[in-house]
Amino acid sequence: MLKGTPFAAAAMIAVGLAGGPASEARAQSFPEQEIQLIIPFGPGGATDIIFRLIAAEAEQHLGTTIVPVNMAGAGATRGSRHVLEAEPDGYTILGSHDTIALSSLAGMVDYSYDDFEQVALLTQTINIPTANAEHPVNSADEIAAYVAENPGDVRFSIIPSSTDHFFWAQFFDEAGIDMADVRLVGYPDTGEQVSGLLAQEVDFGMFNLPSAGSHFESGALKPLGVANDERLAALSETPTLREMGLEFDHATSRGIFAPKGTPQEHIDAIAAAFEKALENEELRSRIENEFGTNVRFLAGDDYEAFLDENETALAAAAEGIEFEN
């Protein structure tokens, strides 16, 4: 009844003015409860270790507890789908990596990076082809000859459609190895892959310092090369693949994602907390020296551009892989 009257107009202006500060107050009150960080892999792998380490520091800047939740299964898609379908309120986020795009390229899921709010890139972990200490191969440039001597019998562990699956496809191409001459053995997560290699169920696996560093140190496993343009401080005696004539680098890029529709101010608050966490010199030193991982923080348009380039490169690599659906 008041529509169009001066009183109605004044009332609407009053509501609008009241709504502005109230809206700002709601934004400033985030977070009001703990945040669940879904990790789509089992405990003990590089993704689990790195996200737990950074989250413990980030929660100091966010003002609430960040609870890491391992949600492995379905080739790391169980956890990502859980976040995809979660309430877009900022209280459920995903800590994952290239596997989001890899699962899409493999036809396992109907979503990719663009179906999430892309919060921030945190790190890139250098990957390392690895063997059991008792294996006769001692360096990555010996793998091709070993496969040629044992065609059809050499076993490589993979998490299907994950980063190591793509790593080996690129490695085989660079080393001149026919994929028909090798056996790919699937595992549900990195922890079980490590156990499988320790038990000599397979010949080779692709790991990194977070997942296998303690076994390198004990001598139970041996690194065969470093997929980086320079040697790692913690493995100074291990040559890079490039030093062996294998011309490619390979890293796992880990970042934070949120359900589509999560308020931008919540995304910004989460990103800022993780950025502050990575400014901690002690934490950076551990990540870089102990875990063979480069700290690389990107957010906003920079992270979006990075993910676009990442997915394009992965799509090119996927052309050499036959996926089982």
Score class of each variant (00 low, 15 high):
Thr5Gly: 03
Phe7Leu: 15
Phe7Arg: 10
Ala8Val: 03
Gly16Gln: 01
Gly20Asn: 10
Ser23Met: 08
Ser29Arg: 11
Glu32Gly: 09
Pro40Glu: 03
Thr47Val: 03
His61Ala: 14
His61Leu: 07
Leu62Phe: 05
Ala72Cys: 00
Arg78Val: 08
Arg81Val: 10
Leu84Asp: 02
Thr92Glu: 05
Leu94Asp: 06
Gly95Val: 00
Leu102Gln: 14
Leu102Trp: 03
Leu102Lys: 08
Ser104Glu: 11
Met108Val: 11
Asp110Gln: 06
Glu117Cys: 02
Thr123His: 03
Thr123Ala: 04
Thr125Pro: 02
Ile128Pro: 05
His135Asn: 12
Pro136Val: 10
Asn138Tyr: 07
Val147Gly: 10
Ala148Gly: 09
Glu149Phe: 02
Pro151Glu: 10
Asp153Lys: 13
Pro160Lys: 13
Pro160Gln: 14
Phe171Ser: 13
Met179Cys: 08
Arg183Gln: 15
Thr190Met: 12
Val194Ala: 03
Glu201Cys: 01
Asp203Thr: 02
Gly205Tyr: 13
Ser218Cys: 07
Gly219Asp: 14
Gly219Arg: 07
Glu230Gly: 11
Glu243Ile: 03
Phe248Leu: 13
Ala251Asn: 12
Thr262Met: 01
Pro263Trp: 00
Ile267Asp: 03
Ala269Tyr: 02
Ala271Phe: 01
Ala272Met: 05
Ala273Asn: 08
Ala273Thr: 10
Ala277Phe: 01
Leu278Asn: 09
Ser285Val: 04
Arg286His: 11
Arg286Thr: 15
Asn289Trp: 07
Glu290Leu: 12
Phe291Gly: 04
Phe306Val: 10
Asn310Gly: 04
